[in-house]
Each structure stands twice: as structure tokens, then as C-alpha cells.
């Protein structure tokens, strides 16, 4: 019979094999911080529903140094999320033609990042106007 004995290599630690994979995993790990931030907001909402004293407790908690460090990290991670989200966008969109020419990946990423800057500024100004 045949002497075939195909060898299947292990996938253990595959993400360490290539810097490209490390960047991919970094992109995916951002989700942990998105979840943590959403949980902090959810706590605030529940506290809001429980009344003024409870909500003020949550507000005081946000002022602790640990929460500042946490939010600074989350801010950096969200910025990376924004960048990576629009960076992969050209791959996730159908081919689009504008004026007979194919829309270039750089244009798509650039437009997305610009939209994000505009949206963030809009939120900042609206909140400023409300307070």
C-alpha cells in the first residue's frame, strides 16, 4: 500500500507567527474594552434608574484615579478601533465606481476616518451646547 503519511502542523500560537496576525489580534482584542466601556455605561444607567443618590455614587466612582486610567486606555483603544475599522473597510465593501473610475481603498479609508472626526466633533459640540 501507499507510504503516504501527510503531516499536519499544529496551529498553537499561530498569531505570534507574523506581525500581520498580531495586528489582527490587536484589532479583535479592542472588543474586550468596548465591552468593558459598555458595562460601565450600563451600570450608570441602572444607577440612574435607582435614583439620585445611587447615580451620584456612580459619578463619584468615575472620578477615581483608577477609572481615569481605565478610560484613558479605553480612549486609546477606541481610536485604534476607529482606525482599524476604516482600514479594513475597503475589503468589506462592494466595488464602487465613481465617474467611471473604481473607488480606491485609500479614498474609502480616508472618507471613513474623516466621517469619524466630523461625527466625534459633532457629538462634542452637541453635548457642549446641551450643558
Amino acid at each position: 500500500m501507499s507510504n503516504r503519511r501527510p503531516y499536519v502542523r499544529s496551529m498553537d500560537g499561530w498569531w505570534k507567527r507574523d506581525p500581520y496576525f498580531i495586528r489582527y489580534m490587536a484589532r479583535e482584542v479592542t472588543a474586550v474594552f468596548v465591552a468593558l466601556y459598555a458595562i460601565v455605561l450600563l451600570f450608570g444607567l441602572v444607577r440612574l434608574g435607582q435614583g439620585e443618590a445611587a447615580f451620584n455614587g456612580w459619578l463619584q466612582y468615575l472620578k477615581t484615579p483608577w477609572m481615569l486610567v481605565f478610560h484613558l486606555i479605553v480612549l486609546a483603544v477606541f481610536c485604534y478601533h476607529t482606525w482599524s475599522w476604516f482600514n479594513i473597510m475597503p475589503k468589506t465593501m462592494p466595488i464602487i465606481f465613481m465617474g467611471g473610475k473604481r473607488l480606491q481603498p485609500g479614498t474609502i479609508t480616508g472618507t471613513g476616518l474623516a466621517a469619524s472626526v466630523v461625527a466625534c466633533l459633532a457629538v462634542l459640540f452637541i453635548v457642549r451646547g446641551m450643558s
Binding site: 476607529t82 469619524s116 457629538v123
Partner: peptide
């Protein structure tokens, strides 16, 4: 999150 996430976290 990509559009307004950074602004929300900052605020």
C-alpha cells in the same frame, strides 16, 4: 463605535 466612540469615552 468607530464614528462616535472616541468622543463618548472622552466625554
Amino acid at each position: 463605535a468607530a464614528l462616535i466612540g472616541p468622543a463618548l469615552v472622552f466625554i
